[in-house]
Amino acid sequence: MAALGGTHRGGPGHPAVVREGDATHLRRRPTVPPGPGEISVAPLVAGVCGTDLQILRGLRDDGAPVLGHEGVARIVDVGPGVADPRLVPGAHVVVNPTHPTDPSFLLGHNVDGMLQARMLVPASAVGGGLVLPLDEVPQGNLAVLIEPLAVVRYAALALREHRPDTLLVVGDGTVGHLAVRTARRWLGPAVRTVHVHHTDQGLEWSAHTPHRADRPIGLADLAAGEPAGMLGRGRVAVLIATPAPATLPGLELALRATEGADVAVDLVGGLRGPALSPFFPGVDLARTRAANCGGEPRPPVVERLTTADGRQVSVLGHRGVANEHLVYAAAELCRDPESFRDLVTHETDLAGAAEILTALGRSERRTVAGRRLVKLAVRTAVPS
Rank of each mutant, 00 (worst) to 15 (best):
residue 186 W to D: 15
residue 205 W to A: 14
residue 183 A to D: 11
residue 142 L to Q: 13
residue 194 V to T: 02
residue 180 V to K: 06
residue 172 D to I: 01
residue 172 D to P: 00
residue 128 G to Q: 08
residue 198 H to W: 06
residue 118 R to F: 05
residue 207 A to Q: 12
residue 111 V to Y: 09
residue 146 I to V: 15
residue 165 D to T: 01
residue 117 A to F: 13
residue 180 V to T: 10
residue 129 G to F: 11
residue 151 V to P: 03
residue 122 P to S: 01
residue 187 L to A: 06
residue 138 P to I: 15
residue 133 P to Q: 04
residue 152 V to T: 07
residue 160 R to M: 10
residue 134 L to D: 12
residue 116 Q to Y: 08
residue 124 S to W: 03
residue 148 P to F: 10
residue 167 L to N: 05
residue 166 T to Q: 03
residue 171 G to I: 05
residue 168 L to W: 06
residue 201 Q to M: 09
residue 176 G to W: 00
residue 165 D to N: 11
residue 116 Q to M: 10
residue 175 V to P: 01
residue 125 A to D: 09
residue 202 G to E: 08
residue 183 A to F: 05
residue 133 P to W: 04
residue 153 R to A: 15
residue 151 V to L: 10
residue 174 T to W: 00
residue 114 M to L: 12
residue 133 P to C: 04
residue 161 E to F: 01
residue 153 R to C: 11
residue 132 L to E: 05
residue 150 A to Q: 10
residue 139 Q to T: 15
residue 165 D to G: 12
residue 146 I to R: 07
residue 120 L to H: 05
residue 154 Y to Q: 14
residue 198 H to C: 05
residue 202 G to P: 06
residue 149 L to T: 02
residue 158 A to H: 11
residue 132 L to R: 11
residue 192 R to E: 11
residue 167 L to M: 09
residue 177 H to K: 14
residue 147 E to D: 14
residue 142 L to T: 08
residue 193 T to C: 02
residue 170 V to Y: 13
residue 122 P to F: 00
residue 201 Q to W: 08
residue 170 V to M: 13
residue 125 A to M: 11
residue 152 V to I: 14
residue 110 N to A: 07
residue 118 R to Q: 09
residue 147 E to Y: 08
residue 199 T to K: 06
residue 126 V to A: 02
residue 186 W to V: 05
residue 192 R to I: 02
residue 191 V to I: 14
residue 115 L to E: 11
residue 181 R to K: 11
residue 193 T to A: 01
residue 156 A to L: 10
residue 114 M to F: 10
residue 185 R to V: 14
residue 138 P to T: 10
residue 203 L to T: 00
residue 147 E to M: 09
residue 139 Q to D: 15
residue 168 L to N: 07
residue 203 L to M: 10
residue 179 A to T: 09
residue 170 V to P: 03
residue 207 A to C: 11
residue 192 R to L: 08
residue 192 R to A: 09
residue 198 H to P: 00
residue 189 P to T: 05
residue 164 P to W: 04
residue 185 R to N: 09
residue 125 A to L: 13
residue 190 A to R: 11
residue 149 L to F: 08
residue 111 V to F: 09
residue 180 V to S: 08
residue 203 L to D: 00
residue 165 D to S: 04
residue 153 R to S: 15
residue 118 R to N: 07
residue 171 G to E: 04
residue 185 R to Y: 05
residue 151 V to G: 02
residue 152 V to S: 06
residue 164 P to R: 11
residue 176 G to S: 02
residue 162 H to R: 08
residue 110 N to H: 11
residue 160 R to S: 15
residue 174 T to Y: 00
residue 145 L to F: 02
residue 166 T to C: 06
residue 167 L to H: 03
residue 170 V to K: 08
residue 169 V to W: 01
residue 171 G to H: 04
residue 112 D to E: 14
residue 111 V to S: 10
residue 112 D to V: 13
residue 202 G to A: 12
residue 175 V to L: 01
residue 191 V to K: 07
residue 181 R to M: 13
residue 191 V to R: 07
residue 115 L to N: 09
residue 154 Y to C: 13
residue 119 M to D: 06
residue 176 G to T: 00
residue 121 V to Q: 04
residue 196 V to F: 00
residue 133 P to E: 03
residue 114 M to H: 07
